[in-house]
Write a protein that binds this DNA or RNA. Structure first.
Length: 517
RNA sequence: GUCCCCAUCGUCUAGCCCGGCCUAGGACAUUGCCCUUUCAAGGCAGUAACGCGGGUUCGAAUCCCGCUGGGGACGCCA
């Protein structure tokens, strides 16, 4: 296996078109297969969230692309928790992130690893850099640095670190140590030449090294920082492809130099375009729900959310709806776009309705239970005939866009009684319909086969007898049965509600009209 | 201020690499019609986009340059 697989990709100094670049990458993989006696590159990717908040839409999309890329290539997907910021990271957030990943079925192969468990590893690498002259102690205080940054910005200058501790003499250094100043440790960034990021989405992105500053890799309290730990972990975990948000593109040249200082080959990168809110700024709480679990609570199906998220930046011709298997089969970075995407809740809602239509009623019955409890339609632990519930759900599938809506429509099937919508009552429960409702009730009373088809026969007989349209009978019945004017076909509704409750509700409607007048 | 990224309907996108099959396709939303016991679902039709300016070329959404616009990054955050 060649030591520097990257040289194959970076030797050419022309700007490669992306797709050509891609072909080279594929050739490279084939090359490995051919030249390594059956061994071929095992793709290893990771999702590395910081537990300073819930799993949000953007993070979930990043996780999803990592997952799909790994599965498509029979590689490994690793979950790593980046919690070196101990002041903001919490275990609760670690749990909710894991919960979100599980809900979306983004199964990982290794981990979750926590960076806080790996501090000795980072310490070793820091010592190595220090010993080899690639890092140095910095005695500037955060306050001083903040002050200088402000000044530079005010003067319209770059807020880059001025490097004043970079070349301290041994004497100066030990003088500071005697003063018991706790130093941070900075990485010595090359100041000449360029760093080239090899990106699967954007091609080669060139940065001038003199733009880069000596970043802090270890805080004065001895904890390591992100740009350092991310490289150490990716090296340690043999990550071959770093797939993450666009907002990290600017960090990448710095990380590349750390890879080099560590003597490790550089992975391939994929910087995904951002997800924006309706105002085209970075998606945040201001734009509505951003946490994945909030969508669960709003009655979205995980597969619908996954399907929506994948289409933010990725496409496969004109296809909109994908099974998980199709996603894995079709996913490549060749079809990932470069432009940021606006999160559109309406399209997500449409996809969700499509997924509800496609689902088995039995599956929906399971999924809707918590929502029924939440809405107080059934009590916790209350027994409910699943077969009957599935039948009821079947009539509602194409009418409910979320599980919340589904639960709420289920109310008139399950509850003992219904409450009338005022407008519906005024429009349909009147003197004219009273006789029809009463007649229907009488016709239904002796009926033993309470099925939709035999109910239809009875309805049609009444309609014909009076020379009216079916709607003239159906709408008042609908109000009597559901309290409102919208429902599945009236015969199905009656069949599912059942004879006993149907008669009761018809009776109540007739009485309501009498009482009302 | 500096650096980086991006640019097709209101939104997600196809087409761009390899210029002509583009009178720019699909989807969401929206409007109208059909179906219909209501509401949906479904079907059909409509409105709607290559940011601007220069090149290159017989020919540019597609290649090149500039501009404009948008986004992101510049932490002892990740």
């Amino acid at each position: 296996m060649p030591k520097d697989r990257h040289s194959l990709l970076t030797n050419s100094n022309i700007q490669l078109p992306i797709r050509l670049h891609f072909q080279i990458e594929i050739c490279y993989i084939l090359y490995l297969r051919l030249n390594s006696g059956g061994y071929f590159l095992m793709i290893r990717v990771r999702f590395a969230p910081s537990p300073t908040g819930h799993l949000h839409i953007g993070g979930a999309r990043t996780a999803l692309f990592n997952y799909l890329f790994a599965r498509h290539n029979n590689g490994k997907f690793i979950l790593r928790i980046e919690n070196t910021d101990r002041t903001r990271s919490t275990d609760e957030y670690i749990e909710t992130i894991i919960e979100g990943m599980k809900w979306l079925r983004l199964e990982w192969d290794e981990g979750p690893f926590r960076q806080t468990d790996r501090f000795d590893v980072y310490r070793n690498y820091v010592d190595k850099l220090l010993k080899e002259g690639n890092a140095y102690y910095c005695y500037c205080t955060p306050e001083e640095l903040e002050q200088r940054r402000k000044e530079a910005l005010a003067q319209g200058k770059s807020p880059k670190y001025d490097g004043r501790c970079r070349n301290l003499t041994k004497i100066q250094d030990s003088r500071f140590k005697i003063q018991e100043k706790n130093p941070a440790i900075r990485f010595k960034m090359p100041q000449e030449g360029q760093a080239v990021v090899d990106d699967m989405i954007r091609g080669k992105v060139v940065f001038e090294n003199d733009q880069l500053d000596d970043l802090i890799i270890m805080r004065s309290d001895g904890t390591p920082t992100y740009n350092f730990t991310v490289v150490v972990d990716d090296v340690d975990m043999d990550i071959t492809h770093v797939i993450r948000g666009d907002d990290h593109l600017n960090n990448t040249p710095k990380q590349i130099h750390i890879y080099k200082a560590l003597g490790h080959e550089i992975p391939l990168f994929a910087h995904l375009p951002m997800i924006l809110g309706a105002d085209r700024t970075r998606l945040s709480k201001r734009h509505g729900a951003t946490s994945v679990m909030a969508y669960k609570d709003m009655g979205y199906l995980p597969d619908a959310l996954v399907n929506y998220l994948v289409r933010l930046g990725w496409s496969y011709g004109d296809q909109e709806v994908f099974t998980r298997e199709e996603l894995i089969k079709y996913f490549t970075f060749e079809n990932v776009g470069k432009a940021a995407a606006v999160f559109n809740p309406e399209k997500l809602l449409w996809l969700n309705s499509q997924y509800i239509i496609k689902s088995n009623p039995e599956e929906l019955a399971d999924m809707v239970m918590p929502f029924l409890e939440n809405a107080g339609i059934i009590q916790k632990g209350q027994n409910i005939d699943r077969q009957w519930l599935s039948k009821a759900i079947k009539t509602l599938q194409e009418r409910a866009k979320t599980l919340v809506e589904l639960a709420s429509s289920l109310r008139y099937y399950i509850a003992e009684d219904v409450e009338y919508n005022e407008k519906a009552k005024a429009n349909f429960l009147n003197e004219k319909s009273r006789a029809l409702l009463s007649e229907l009730k009488d016709s239904l009373t002796p009926l033993s086969d309470f099925s939709a088809s035999s109910l239809e026969t009875i309805f049609m007989a009444i309609v014909e007898k009076h020379g009216i349209k079916l709607g003239n009978l159906a709408q008042p019945v609908r109000v009597a049965m559901t309290g409102g004017t919208e429902s599945p076909g009236i015969f199905e509704v009656l069949e599912i509600v059942g004879k006993e409750k149907t008669l009761k509700r018809l009776d109540k409607a007739v009485k309501a009209i009498k009482g009302g007048n």
